[in-house]
Amino acid sequence: MNQAEVSKLVSKLRIKVPAEPRKLRSPKGPEGRIDKLRKTVTGLIKYERIELNHNRGDEARQYAERLISEAIRYGDCHKPTMDVANYWLLEKELIHKLFKVLVPRFENCNTAYTRMLNAPRPLPSRVDDKVVLELRGNPYPSLVNRQSNNRLLIQNVLLDAAKYDYRQSKYAEMAEKIGQREEAQALEKKSKEPTKESSNESKTPEI
């Protein structure tokens, strides 16, 4: 049958969304799972950087991204979006924050709205994966050091010099070509002039 255009129903999230939802065991079952995730998403929106286990962090990230993308897509006045935000955000002032602070922040954003980084393990032998989940643009010190490469490193110096050299040789080539073309044009002009003179001479005897 005709597959609905999913991109017209829901904005595409810029994170990996697995096909099956994670189970996240809880005494109340699936309802408990959603409860727990609600608390996590509320915490993320409130504190903008939280540390938790990998499983729950990954699930909460998907829901948080979906929430923000819905808010951006439909805006303040759309009732279903407000209901969703009301359900997911347990502290009601965070709904204000979502629509008034986060939407303008992420409106023109090309990348995902959240960042999930692997936190250092508390004990090297234990396998529990701790993860730091944060909203982009938070006011805290950055965990990721994004510095551009030093121009003075030896490989950059060598490559810069090679690029400069190449450019210079190309300019020289182009200059040569232009020079040759001009010469050729000049020669053509010169060769045309004598023919004009001879044609003038030939004309006059007729008269």
Partner: peptide
């Protein structure tokens, strides 16, 4: 000759540019 320190990771095409030069 041309050389790079051990910590530098450069793909073979970029290195070939350096050797050609």
């Amino acid at each position: 000759g041309v050389a790079l320190p051990t910590n530098v990771v450069l793909n073979h095409f970029a290195y070939s540019i350096l050797t050609e030069r």
